[in-house]
């Protein structure tokens, strides 16, 4: 303990070297802009220098903007559908690929690959495919918001299934083999083993995957921009894109954009907080 204190003092002299670069960079690009952002959400401004305080007006404008409310609803719908489809498909693929069959590594490699491609490129790849299919009916993805919605869901599935699958595979592989063996000896059917052993044992993975897809779907931007860019008529713009459009696509609305961003950040933080609570509660149970 004596040593520890002495070394701590020795360490302190070096704090500029160890902490300095990170502290400066993080303060410059995150802490300062964050505080400015919170303040500016209560101001009318067109550049950071001409801000005039105007109370809650931006928030009132934001919450009465039909584009924003529409984007919020669209995002919620999209997130709900994506979370379910991605996780169900990923989980079943993980079950199949942990059955000790030949070639499962090759399948894993293929399913995971789309996750590495960036959102913009992904969006344009699917733009070609979806417009190709819809072209057979003489329309394209900008024809109706329904097409845009399902286009985004398909894209999200294509990108996220492999990612969630590898997490589920890791979860399933960490179940002790003896447990599954014992259930076989006791005469449990494959379905009973799944229901009573595998699913309860991988609940931590389920939490992780649910919240990863949840926050990734909720914050989706690049794919949205590249696939539909909100068309038709901003109906398929999700929250991140709507905020972007408010900042850069309209005149004098920066304050409203910043207020929308604050609302968006609060919702995202709330989701993260719920996840933390659930994870903590589970850890306490164990």
């Amino acid at each position: 303990m004596q040593n520890y204190k002495m070394l701590n003092r020795k360490l302190k002299k070096y704090s500029p070297v160890f902490l300095g670069p990170m502290l400066i960079a993080f303060t410059t690009v995150f802490i300062v802009p964050f505080i400015m952002g919170v303040y500016l959400s209560f101001c009318k401004f067109t550049t950071v220098d001409n801000a005039v305080f105007n109370g809650f007006e931006n928030f009132i404008n934001a919450l009465s903007d039909t584009n924003f409310l529409n984007a919020l609803w669209f995002t919620v719908k999209f997130t709900a559908v994506s979370v379910i489809t991605v996780n169900v498909i990923a989980f079943f693929l993980a079950l199949l690929l942990t059955r000790k069959m030949r070639g499962s590594n090759l399948f894993r490699t293929i399913f995971f690959m789309p996750n590495l491609i960036g959102g913009i490129v992904l969006g344009y790849i699917w733009n070609l495919i979806i417009n190709g299919v819809l072209g057979l009916m003489g329309v394209d993805i900008t024809y109706s918001a329904t097409y845009g919605f399902w286009g985004l869901v398909i894209l999200m599935n294509w990108q996220m299934i492999g990612y969630m699958m590898v997490i589920y595979i890791a979860g399933i592989q960490s179940i002790p083999g003896s447990l599954i063996e014992a259930s076989h000896i006791d005469g449990a059917s494959a379905f009973q083993t799944l229901k009573s052993i595998i699913i309860p044992m991988i609940m931590p993975s389920v939490t992780i995957c649910t919240f990863l897809t949840l926050s990734n779907s909720f914050k989706l931007f690049d794919q949205n921009l590249a696939l539909t860019n909100g068309a038709p008529n901003r109906e398929t713009a999700m929250m991140a894109l709507d905020i972007y459009n408010t900042f850069y696509g309209s005149i004098g609305q920066q304050g409203v954009g910043q207020a929308k961003a604050v609302i968006f950040a609060i919702i995202v933080a709330l989701i993260a907080w719920i996840q933390l609570r659930i994870t903590r509660a589970r850890e306490e149970q164990l």
Binding site: F26, V29, F30, V32, F34, L40, V48, K219, F264, A272
Partner: peptide, 28 residues
């Protein structure tokens, strides 16, 4: 101070980019 810095760092992971994009761009 280190504890505080660490907590703010973890907090920053939750904050969506849209929250700081405008002010960060002008600062930078």
């Amino acid at each position: 101070f280190c504890r505080l810095f660490y907590n703010i760092l973890v907090f920053s992971m939750v904050v969506p980019f849209q929250m700081v994009m405008y002010t960060m761009t002008s600062t930078v």
